[in-house]
């Protein structure tokens, strides 16, 4: 199989062999995409050519021409949000409401967008939480065509947030801070299910959320819990706090002051790496989405 991630201008991928539910990673690679690919026009007819350039070289560079492709794309490609809906509504009513709401939000882009929904496992709140993913029809079609033309089978496509969530989720309430270039992403879990995510910022040692989608009540509770932790406190927080990668800038001070309460995650820890294979990896934490796709394959 081939697990491909495109996030923040980087293309990262893993080639792995799967047999009897066991997965052996043969190669891991990362290449920086040129600036033309950072913010592609997803509704342009030229997208097919652009994707062809991205994928063809990568597929040709692989040692074995594999068939299955699992793909993870960032928010430049897939708009992923978590919205609340009333609990009393039926599934059809929920979908009708969300379509009505998204139609107003997207305006003229609505007729050319593909929309996907999934209800998140309840977290005891008085509302249901629905994850929505929106991708332009043209982009979805182009991805399918390019991967099939390259001789592969497109099996799975998801936003990078879900790939990361699969890699870092636990069984309990938790928050995970993830390095993303010079910024940080935060994913909030309840009962092992993602309920919110966004971009946190840190000022004078105080953590707050710059952008957020999902259960804001959960987020504000968790963030205030984190800010209340004193460096020398002996009390352990009721939520588990994790981080992945070397967090940049002011976050370094945050990690060092609260390291007693933080757990570091290495996304590649649970995989077997093939013998005699060169693994071209500078920072394993950059392969969070790729690891999430590999987990998806063996689920």
């Amino acid at each position: 199989m081939l697990a491909i991630s495109i996030r923040s201008g980087w293309l990262r991928y893993a080639h792995a062999d799967v047999s009897d539910g066991t997965l052996v990673v043969n190669s891991l690679k990362a290449t920086k995409l040129s600036k033309d690919f950072h913010r592609p026009d997803l509704r342009s007819p030229d997208l097919l050519v652009l994707l062809g350039i991205i994928f063809q070289d990568m597929i040709e560079s692989l040692p074995v021409h594999d068939k299955e492709v699992f793909l993870s794309l960032d928010e430049r490609w897939i708009d992923c949000q978590i919205f609340p809906v009333d609990k009393g509504l039926t599934r059809d009513e929920q979908e009708s409401y969300l379509r009505w709401f998204l139609e107003r939000r997207l305006g003229p882009l609505w007729p050319t967008s593909s929309v996907f929904f999934q209800e998140l496992k309840s977290n005891g709140s008085d509302r249901d939480w629905i994850m929505t993913c929106i991708i332009p029809e043209n982009a979805l079609e182009a991805l399918n065509i390019v991967l099939k033309r390259a001789g592969t089978v497109p099996v799975w496509l998801e936003p990078c947030t879900l790939s990361l969530a699969r890699t870092v989720s636990g069984d309990e309430a938790s928050v995970v801070f993830i390095k993303d270039g010079r910024s940080v992403r935060a994913l909030f879990f309840f009962g092992g299910t993602i309920h919110a995510f966004g971009q946190p910022i840190i000022r004078n040692g105080i953590v707050s959320m710059d952008t957020i989608t999902g259960d804001q009540g959960l987020v504000s509770t968790v963030i205030s819990m984190i800010n209340d932790i004193k460096p020398r406190s002996t009390k352990s927080p009721t939520v588990s706090i994790k981080f992945m990668g070397q967090l940049p800038g002011k976050w370094k001070g945050f990690v060092s002051s609260k390291k007693r309460y933080l757990q570091q995650i290495n996304p590649l820890d649970s995989f077997i790496l093939a013998k005699n294979e060169k693994l071209n990896v500078n920072d394993p934490s950059d392969f969070g989405e790729v690891a999430g796709l590999l987990h998806r394959r063996i689920m």
Partner: peptide, 25 residues
Amino acid sequence: MADLNLFGSEGFQAPVVSEETPPPL
């Protein structure tokens, strides 16, 4: 865990029930 496959059908997708959990290390 939320599992949305955008290569799958549009609209509401039922959560995918995992056949096997990832093998422990």
